[in-house]
């Protein structure tokens, strides 16, 4: 069983949802993102998403745009991102890692080389924001050959008729973009999720993670009651970005503070489903 599947199976047995945290590779430098990766795994992240910086992140809001710019200034490349992941895997073989990015850097690296090197580095899943199902034959055979899950995005605009098309050949989990908009802007309400998640459940047996606009422990807890995972990205990056010193660097205290957020999110999500069955 893949790391992603076994993680969701274990969490299902524990009756809790996955906390999926996000790190933009090389934001603001390689050392900080390495420390965040390691620290997030230690402080309660069940799965970690690693953003591959791109000059033109069309689906991202200002927070991730700026993170990408800092990362590119720090020399981020696809090869550098994979090196970061290899270093993490040398100390952690259990937490699933998902690469999230845009297609062009992958094409420039070479599709087959990317799939092979990402698998060798210890990547479990890939999300390519600007590659809808209609275009995914470009990447899918290489990813499948290297046992990497191609994780699909589903949006509020994805109709019931379209869901089976989007979810065909999808694996790992389904990433539900819970708002129509860019990352880190609006937030879906509990009512939205109560309406939307069952609609997707009817179309797939895969776990469903909710992203775009999950910022606080309370919001993560709401997601945990409806879905199988919550992705928190912009809120963590905002905390990091606001604490950078005048030279654009992160102090150890700042990294600890961001990791405290991760721990608070993890605690809220662990408690979220316990309320119904009584604490303890």
């Amino acid at each position: 069983m893949s790391r992603i599947a076994s993680t969701f199976a274990r969490l299902g047995a524990e009756n809790r949802a996955a906390l999926i945290t996000f790190v933009e590779a090389f934001d603001p430098d390689q050392e900080t993102s390495a420390a965040l990766l390691k620290g997030m795994a230690a402080r309660g992240a069940d799965i970690i998403e690693i953003g591959m910086p791109f000059t033109d992140p069309m689906a991202d809001g200002p927070t991730i745009q700026q993170a990408g710019r800092r990362a590119l200034r720090a020399g981020a490349t696809v090869a550098g991102t994979l090196a970061l992941i290899r270093a993490f895997r040398s100390v952690n073989q259990t937490v699933p890692l998902v690469l999230m990015g845009y297609l062009n850097p992958i094409l420039a690296y070479g599709i087959e080389a990317f799939a092979a090197d990402a698998a060798a580095a210890g990547i479990d899943g890939v999300i390519v924001v600007d590659m809808p199902t209609e275009e995914s034959d470009l990447l899918l055979p290489s990813l499948q050959a290297h046992a990497i899950d191609l994780i699909r995005l589903v949006a509020p605009t994805t109709s019931d008729e379209r869901l089976p098309i989007v979810l065909k050949e999808s694996s790992g989990f389904v990433y539900y973009v819970s708002i129509t908009g860019i990352t880190g802007t609006r937030t879906a309400s509990a009512e939205d999720l109560a309406r939307d998640i069952p609609r997707i459940r009817r179309a797939t047996a895969l776990p469903i993670a909710v992203g775009f606009g999950v910022r606080t422990p309370d919001q993560a807890a709401i997601v945990a009651r409806h879905a199988d995972g919550a992705v928190v990205a912009s809120a963590l990056i905002d905390h990091l970005a606001m604490g950078l010193d005048s030279g654009g660097h992160a102090s150890p205290a700042l990294i600890d503070a961001v990791l405290d957020d991760v721990a608070a999110l993890a605690a809220a999500m662990r408690a979220a489903r316990q309320i119904n069955i009584g604490l303890g």
């Binding site: 924001v129 600007d130 809808p132 209609e134 275009e135 605009t157 109709s159 379209r162 973009v177």
Partner: peptide, 20 residues
């Protein structure tokens, strides 16, 4: 039918836009 001119073109957009 896929919006291709030879090797070029296509529809490389996020799923949110794809139905549109």
């Amino acid at each position: 039918a896929r919006g291709r001119f030879g090797d070029f073109g296509g529809r490389f957009v996020a799923e949110t836009l794809m139905p549109l």
